[in-house]
Simulated scan of single mutants.
Amino acid sequence: MSRRGTRMTMTTLDKLTPIDQKPSASERVAERLIGLISSGNIAPGDKLPSENELSKALQVSRPVVREALRGLAMMGIVASRQGGGCYVTDLKPQRLMAPLSFALSLNDYNIESLFRARQVIDTGIAAEAARYATDEQIASLSELVDAGYKLIDDPVGFRVMDAQFHELIAVAANNDFLEKVSGSLYSLAIEQRRKASAKPGVLEVSAADHAAICAAIAGRDPEAAREAMSVHVENIRRTTLAVMDEA
């Protein structure tokens, strides 16, 4: 390659991946407002000053403020209400994590990276569930395990039970953020897992995995719960990839 060609390539890369790019004015405004909210100066439910008032207070133009508010709205931090005005939302984790779920569903992802993420998140959640699950939640998990064995010949029914089983473990972990992330990851590659669940022997293995996870959580053993969930996620990964290879 000629020196000229190399120089042109580097110039193009520089344009595509700027180094040490400074945040824009709107990003700085958004960060400032987030700081005011996190410090308690602005509380959930508070009405924000008008765009004109914010532009004067922050010494930026109204378009900059408008763009910043648009970004915060996309993040679920602020919202407009009927009758006018922009308000801070309730800031509940479910609302704040919604953009993550949407982004994950839109973006292409590598199936191996998905299951590596599930190994980190799902195993951690299982360990937390072993610490925090209530007796009632453990009883419900046990009932779902029993139901799973009865649904081995019913892939649709088993998948319904499976979703409830994993959701209950996430709830038992007593962490809203982990619960939302886990749910988002669970929903990915669902079509491939649907096909895998119809393969002979797959649901028998999943039912046994569920029993091991439930036993570890009931025994209040975080490390055993982590290990049992790790085995389960690996089995899901293996059968999912097998279906994808066939396709």
Rank of each mutant, 00 (worst) to 15 (best):
M1N: 06
G5F: 03
G5Q: 11
G5I: 01
T6W: 10
T6H: 13
T9Y: 13
M10I: 12
M10S: 13
L16M: 13
T17L: 12
T17I: 11
Q21T: 11
E27C: 00
R28Y: 06
V29M: 08
A30F: 10
E31D: 12
E31S: 10
R32E: 15
R32V: 13
R32W: 15
L33F: 09
L36E: 14
L36M: 12
L36Y: 11
S39W: 03
G40V: 09
N41G: 06
N41R: 09
I42M: 10
P44G: 08
G45D: 08
G45C: 06
K47L: 07
L48F: 08
S50P: 03
S50L: 02
S50A: 07
E51V: 04
L58Q: 05
Q59S: 10
Q59N: 12
R62D: 02
P63C: 02
P63V: 00
V64D: 02
V64A: 05
V65S: 04
L69K: 07
M75Y: 11
V78R: 00
V78H: 03
V78P: 03
S80M: 08
R81P: 03
R81S: 05
V88W: 05
T89D: 04
D90P: 03
D90N: 09
P93F: 04
P93V: 06
Q94R: 12
Q94K: 11
R95I: 10
M97S: 13
A98I: 00
L100W: 07
L100D: 08
S101M: 11
A103T: 05
S105R: 08
L106M: 14
D108T: 08
R116N: 12
A117E: 11
A117H: 09
R118S: 06
R118C: 03
Q119I: 04
I121V: 15
I121S: 09
T123A: 09
G124V: 03
G124R: 04
A127E: 12
E128W: 10
A129D: 10
A129E: 09
A130K: 01
A130D: 03
Y132M: 13
A133I: 02
E136Q: 13
Q137F: 00
V145I: 07
A147C: 11
G148Q: 04
G148W: 01
K150Q: 15
I152D: 12
V156M: 05
R159N: 14
R159F: 06
V160G: 15
V160C: 12
M161N: 12
F165E: 05
A170R: 06
F177W: 14
L178E: 14
L178Y: 15
L178S: 12
E179Q: 14
S182L: 04
L188P: 10
A189R: 00
A189S: 12
A189D: 13
I190G: 13
I190Q: 14
Q192G: 15
R193L: 07
R194Y: 13
R194H: 14
R194D: 15
S197A: 12
A198E: 14
P200W: 06
G201P: 02
G201C: 00
E204W: 08
A207E: 01
A207N: 01
A208C: 04
A208P: 06
A212D: 15
A212Y: 09
A212I: 06
A215V: 06
A216I: 06
I217P: 09
A224L: 02
A224Q: 05
E227Y: 04
A228D: 04
M229G: 00
S230T: 06
V231Q: 11
V233Y: 09
E234I: 00
N235Y: 02
T240I: 01
L241N: 07
A242R: 11
A242S: 10
A242V: 06
M244F: 10
E246R: 05
